[in-house]
Simulated assay, not measured.
Amino acid sequence: MKKHIILSLLAITMLTACNSKTESTLDLSGTWSSDKSAGNYQEAIISGDEIEIDWKTSDTSSLYWAGSYDAPVKNVKEYSWISKNNKEKTSTALLASQDDTKKISYKDGVISYDVSVMGMTQTMKLTKTGPVPETTASETESSSEVPTITAETAEHDTIAETDEHDEWPEITALGLDNSTMLSIYNDYESAWKSSPDDPSAEADYESQVDQEIGSNYGISPENASLVYLYVMSNYDSLMAQSGADASGIKLKHGTLLDVTTSGGTIVLKAKITSSLTKRLTTQSCFFDVYEAIQTYNLNQYDELQYWAVADMTNGSEQKVISFTITKDVLENVANGTIIENQLIDNASDVWLSPALQ
């Protein structure tokens, strides 16, 4: 009898343990955050069958992703699902991804997914930092005061194109022009090239960069970091707004045929005539580019490409010269570190046709 009781208790214990394993599933619900970079990070909230991811700074929040969440059905160490974009939420969010789907993975306490900005893709890694936040009445009332553009209003002729500044009131309050903001962005990009490899020293370095750049432009470190995030998110439109106009650029020694921009690259296409010597003809092209950089603020671009054609003695028109000016050279021309007759020695990928050699 005693043996039967022991066996029964053992069976019950094993059954209970088995049921516990069956009922225990991986639970990803909660708040997840990435490491901060220049004061910026992403925060994800997984609740119910939804996941929302926001771009975050110390005092701003902008939607990046709103999509479906398919919860695991068992306890696993690795998991992934394909989140379907909730376009009703993301279509009117300035910084939101417009991809139809996004693969989100979990492994070793980290959820990860790819983020593409300005043509570059990086993997974001987030760790769990808390439970699902409770929505308070005050938060609901506050969010209801924020105007949104619906599909219905978007069709109205009276609705103007959204200004990026409208979604960033802190940026508008700073009163910075596009050129200054692009300059701040470029200073950050230059600083990141010297970022320490030691993760423990990275946070201190980023704080130092925020302090220095903020001081250089007369704004707080937090606002400097915010400007960097703003430009990173709106780079192409800012470059287009601040870019060169083909009708505005004039060349002293040649005729400008076309100006094209692609991302951070500007291409000047010209037609030239021969000077007294081949060397003078070549130098005149560099003089034109040097003057254009200084006059039209072309140092706003990451790269300048120039090429020119000329009429040949046989009546044909052929390409005779091309070269590239890199970002550091553009900046040094703009600030006068490189003078006019030195540009030819600082250009890259210089090509001359036999007619100019």
Results as ranks from 00 to 15, higher is better:
A173L: 05
V267D: 12
P199K: 13
E134A: 15
L256Y: 03
D187C: 08
T261S: 12
D157G: 15
E212W: 02
T162E: 14
N178K: 09
Y188W: 05
D157F: 13
Y230A: 00
E189M: 14
D187I: 01
L268I: 04
L182T: 07
Y205M: 11
Y205G: 08
Y230R: 00
L176S: 04
G214M: 02
N223C: 02
S247Q: 10
S142V: 02
D166C: 05
S143M: 11
G264H: 10
P199D: 12
S242A: 15
S237F: 06
A203V: 06
A203L: 09
E155G: 12
W168I: 00
E212L: 01
V227P: 00
L251W: 06
A151W: 03
T162P: 13
P133E: 00
D157L: 11
A191S: 12
T172K: 15
T260L: 05
Y228P: 09
K278N: 15
Y205K: 11
E139M: 09
E206W: 13
S194K: 11
T150G: 08
I249H: 10
V209T: 03
V259W: 09
L238M: 12
Y217V: 01
I266N: 14
S200A: 14
A151N: 03
I171R: 02
I184F: 07
V146T: 09
G214Y: 04
Q208C: 05
I272M: 15
N223K: 04
E202L: 13
D245R: 11
K250P: 05
I213T: 03
A151G: 03
S179C: 12
P196E: 00
E161M: 11
K250H: 14
A240M: 05
A246W: 03
I266V: 15
N216V: 01
D177V: 06
R279A: 14
P147G: 04
S237H: 07
T172G: 10
T140F: 10
D163M: 09
E161S: 09
A160L: 05
S179I: 12
R279I: 10
L176Y: 04
